[in-house]
Nucleic acid binder design. Structure first.
Lengths: 217, 217
DNA sequence: CAGATTTGTCACCGGTCAGTGACAACTGGG
DNA sequence: CCCAGTTGTCACTGACCGGTGACAAATCTG
C-alpha cells in the first residue's frame, strides 16, 4: 500500500464540527469543575478536548462565547436537578418551604462540583466572564423558587429576604469550604454524618426563626 | 558638577534593610487587599514597593516567608480590632454572647478588605501559601472567643457548633459577595442601611435559635 | 584610605499564557 | 475529476510569570 500520511481509519475522528464543539464544551466544564477557575483558559481547555485552541476562537469566538455555551448547558442541567424537589406535596407553611429549599440547595450544591467552582469564582474575582456563567443559573433558580413557593408568605416581623440570604450564603460558603478544606470554623464537613448534623442545624434555625406552625391569612 | 550616575540626594532612599523590608510587607498587604490574591506575586509586590523582587527572596526567602511576616502583622492588627468588643459588660446568656460575636465579626470583616481577600483566597484555592496567612488569624480569634465566652454554654437541644458555623459562614460569604457584587441572592448590600437590615436579621435568627432568656445551671 | 560586606539593580532564563496567520487534510458539490 | 470550502494543526508573537546570577553602589570595618 502507498504511504498514507495520517489517520489510517478516520472513522473515529471524523471531521464533525458539532461533535468537536460539544467536546470543547464538555472539556471546559471538566476543567472548571476539576481544576478550578485558575485553569479556565484556552490552552488548558483545548489540551483537554484534544484539539487545537484555534477551534475555540473559531467556533465560540473565544472564552466568552464558550462561557455562554456552558451557561446554556448548565441551565438545562439545573432544571433537571431541581425537578425532584418539586414533585413532593407542596409545603404548608413558609418555613416548610424555606426549609425544603435550603436543604435541597445544600444537597444539590454539595454534589455538583461545577457549581461550587462557579460560586467560588464569582466570590473570589467577579468578571464579565464568570458573570455570563452565573446569569442563566440564577434566572433558572429564581424561576423555580417562584413556582414552588405557591402563595405562602413569611410570618410578620421576620425579614425573610435578609434571613434567607444569610442562610443560603452560609450553606454556600460551607459547601465551598468543605470542598476546599473539609471543615469550617472547627466544624468537620467530610462524611455524610457531618452533613446530616449540619442539615439538622439548618432545619432548627429555620424552624426557630419562622416558626413551625402555619401562618395565618 | 561631575556626572554622578544616580541618586543625587540619597538622603531619602537611604540603604536601610529594615525599612525596605517593612515597605515590602506593606506593599504586599496593599496588593492583596486591593488587587486580590491573583496579583499576589513577587513581580507585583516588588513593583508596588518600588524595589527589586530580588530583595523579597533575600529578606524573606520568597513568597512563603513574606506570607509569614504578613501573618504576624495581621495577628497583632486583629487583636487591636477585636479589643473594643471585649470591654463591654460580659454577656448574660450564650445567645447574647453569640450575637455580639456575630455582629462584631461582621463589622470587623466588613471594614477590613485584606481579611476579606484572605478568606476568599482560602475558599477559592487553598494552598500552603494562604494557609500560612490564615493560621495566625484563626488562632488569635479562637483565643478571643475563649476569653469572652466566660462560662456560658449553649441551651440544650441546640447544636451550637453547627449553628454557629452556619451563621459565621453566612456572614463571611455575604461580606465577600457584597465586596464583589454589592448584593447576594437579591439582597442589596451596599450602604449602611442594607447592613443594618442584615444585622437585625442576624440578631433575630440568633435570638430565635438560642432563645432570648438566660440559660439554667 | 583600602578592602570586605551589605544593599540594591539589572539582565537573563525557562515556562505559560492569549491570540493570530499560514498551511495541511479532508469533504462535498459542480 | 477538480475545485472551493470546511475542519484541524502548527508555528509564531508578545506579554507576563517565578527565579537566579552578575554586577554596581553605598556602607561599614580595619
Amino acid at each position: 500500500m502507498p504511504k498514507r500520511p495520517s489517520t489510517p481509519d478516520t472513522a473515529l475522528r471524523s471531521r464533525d464540527r458539532d461533535a468537536t464543539a460539544r467536546a470543547i464544551v464538555l472539556a471546559a466544564k471538566q476543567v472548571l469543575a476539576e481544576d478550578g477557575f485558575q485553569s479556565f483558559g484556552v490552552n488548558a481547555i483545548a489540551r483537554r478536548a484534544g484539539c487545537d485552541k484555534q477551534l475555540i476562537y473559531r467556533y465560540f469566538g473565544g472564552l466568552e462565547g464558550l462561557a455562554d455555551a456552558i451557561g446554556a448547558d448548565l441551565a438545562a442541567e439545573l432544571a433537571d436537578e431541581l425537578a425532584p424537589f418539586s414533585v413532593e406535596p407542596p409545603p404548608a407553611t413558609y418555613g416548610q418551604w424555606m426549609e425544603r429549599l435550603a436543604l435541597g440547595l445544600l444537597e444539590l450544591l454539595r454534589r455538583n462540583r461545577l457549581m461550587q467552582q462557579i460560586n467560588a469564582w464569582e466570590s473570589a474575582m467577579p468578571s464579565p466572564l464568570v458573570g455570563r456563567l452565573v446569569e442563566s443559573r440564577s434566572v433558572r433558580l429564581a424561576q423555580w423558587m417562584n413556582e414552588t413557593r405557591g402563595g405562602l408568605t413569611a410570618p410578620e416581623g421576620a425579614d425573610a429576604p435578609a434571613v434567607n440570604a444569610l442562610l443560603i450564603a452560609g450553606i454556600q460558603q460551607l459547601v465551598i469550604a468543605a470542598s476546599a478544606n473539609g471543615q469550617f470554623a472547627g466544624l468537620s464537613l467530610r462524611d455524610d454524618e457531618d452533613w446530616l448534623r449540619l442539615k439538622a442545624a439548618v432545619s432548627a434555625v429555620i424552624r426557630a426563626t419562622y416558626g413551625a406552625q402555619p401562618q395565618r391569612s
